[in-house]
Amino acid sequence: MDQLVAVLIDGIIYSAWLFVAAVGLTLIYGVMKIVNVTHGSFYALGAYAAASITGWALAQGMPPSLSYPVLLGSALLVTLVVAPLIERGILRFMYVKDEVVILLITYALFLILEDAIKLVWGVNPYFIAEPYGLLGSFDVMDLTYPYYNLILVGVAIVCGVGLFWMLGHTRAGKLLVAVIHDTEVSRAMGINVERMYLFTFTFGSLLAAIGGAFTAPTVSVVPGLGIEVIVLSFAVVVIGGLGSLPGAALGAVMVGLVRSATIHYLPQVELFVIYLVMAMVLAFRPRGLFSIAEARKI
């Protein structure tokens, strides 16, 4: 019983992390039809920016309670600098190319960003434990959980609900939905698709950076941080259906719970099980669980 509760709590926390890390990927695919490998780079960029800026601010005597908005601000800052640069500078010339070729282009960009990160931040690890340690912890049936994990869950809920609200209730969101359904018709109807692409790429990347920023206090920020995130996010969005937001949520919960269950009951198969689920879903529903027809993606 205790273990079941632990599985659930760990699963929810892990799902929240996965959702934030992956949801931008599905948004970018839905709108732009790009399987974006640089997503992992933005996760890493967010983590590095957050760790270094927050660490610097704390060293300057900033009260630790302010570090949460600073984490968010760092993610925003680094994304607003890098994402438009990549989209306007390189990607926009590539949209005519085949889906697979664009994937390779983002892979090339990922390699470049990996080293760019090392050039800017060096190869030594960064730690910022304050935002994590500050909140203390709580007990659930003899198990201790840091309060900080609740922040992660909160971030995931805010991101998810915010995205849904934006797509359904704002002008920009409704235009996005139109582009998702049919790019050509949207273009013909006078929607500025180019601007939509810039916005989507930046916004999607921002979500990855937020994921990285809020994870930074719980880990040591080292080179290669984004590499595993890429495959994990692929798994999450592929399970849910590329381009589907509810799919990303479902994928995150499935992967989160499955992983937490195996860690508790059968740790030998922990990693393997995630990709097994991904392969099974692809085998039986190649377009993922949440995609019925081609035209309806979100």
Partner: peptide, 28 residues
């Protein structure tokens, strides 16, 4: 299974299967 897939889905399914092997070996 794989010969039925094309484009991005062929790539992603082969990726998933290779990661299964990785996950297995890491824990063996």
């Amino acid at each position: 299974l794989l010969a039925r897939y094309r484009s991005i889905f062929f790539g992603l399914l082969s990726l998933a299967i290779s990661m299964i092997l990785y996950g297995l070996l890491v824990k063996t």
